[in-house]
Simulated assay, not measured.
Amino acid sequence: MYQIKEHLILGFHGCDEETCQKLINSPNEFHFNKNPYDWLGHGMYFWENDLQRAYQWALEKHQQGKIKQPAVLGAFIASGHCCDFLNLKYTEKLAAYYREMKDQSVKLPCNEDVKSDSYKDKLLRNLDCSVIEYMHEQIGIIQKIEKQNFGFSLTPSFDTVRCVFPEGAPAFPGAAIKLKSHIQICVRNPKSILAFFRPRLELPLHLAA
């Protein structure tokens, strides 16, 4: 019962201006990522309570030529049944699914570095994504069996997945705190997003587009 989070989360999604406008004007749309390297599996990603980090990400993608005009989309998120990897229950559960995959002799990918990342933060999380998606698949199988046996499912799906990530350079020499550390929330259930909004950007001048 302690895993159901009742409070709302403010999430910020770095994206192209066109995507931002589309979701503001058509809030029932859902931008679902299915990249094999997504850090928390498939879904729509938000920086939790970090507008500046979301804009910084969008600006970096713009500089790489991947988006035309950097923008940030805000969202009110009801995290609901959350697979929160800041909670021991879920990190242990994920480790068990990893062992299950290994026992089945499943060929597992590896997390990989990006050449441009001098801090070697394994930005391509192929392994993590694979294990998390396996977890969701197994939950789906259990639900199907329960429905066949009982006519309904006792096992809930996860609405959201959440984790903290240390990333980037040390905040100062010798520090364990990283400049790009953040909390991400991956929304799998579109109903968890109660509303999109256009946030007010109050950024340092060096981050202005």
Rank of each mutant, 00 (worst) to 15 (best):
M101K: 07
F32D: 07
N189Q: 08
C110F: 05
I141S: 06
N149L: 15
H42G: 03
S79V: 04
Y90K: 03
K89Q: 14
S181K: 04
C83E: 02
F30A: 04
E112M: 07
D50R: 05
L59M: 13
T19Q: 10
P156K: 08
L203G: 02
N25Q: 14
R162C: 03
F197P: 01
R200W: 05
L108G: 08
L207F: 08
D103Y: 07
W47C: 03
H182F: 11
M135A: 13
H206S: 11
L194Q: 15
V72W: 00
T19C: 13
D84H: 12
N87H: 10
G41Y: 00
K5R: 12
S153Q: 10
A54K: 00
F76A: 07
I24M: 06
G11E: 03
D103T: 11
C186G: 06
P36V: 11
Q148Y: 12
K122C: 06
G140K: 08
F165S: 03
Q56K: 14
P27V: 10
R125K: 08
P190R: 03
V106A: 10
M1N: 13
F196L: 07
L203Q: 02
L88V: 14
N35A: 10
L40E: 00
T91A: 04
P204G: 10
F196G: 01
K144H: 10
N87R: 06
N189M: 10
K191M: 06
F196Q: 04
M1T: 14
I139M: 05
E202S: 10
H182Q: 13
V114N: 09
A171R: 10
C186E: 02
L124E: 01
F30M: 06
A71T: 03
A171C: 10
V131I: 13
N111F: 00
L10S: 13
A176M: 15
Y2F: 13
A175K: 11
I145A: 12
E29L: 15
L201G: 03
C186M: 15
A95V: 07
P156E: 06
K178H: 09
S118A: 13
E112P: 01
I67S: 02
K180T: 14
I77M: 05
E112F: 05
N149A: 14
L207P: 02
Q3I: 09
I4D: 12
F150Q: 11
S130W: 00
N149S: 12
V187C: 03
L40K: 00
W57L: 03
H136N: 11
E92T: 05
P199F: 02
G41D: 02
E6S: 11
L88M: 14
K180V: 05
Y97T: 07
I142T: 15
Q21G: 01
S181Y: 06
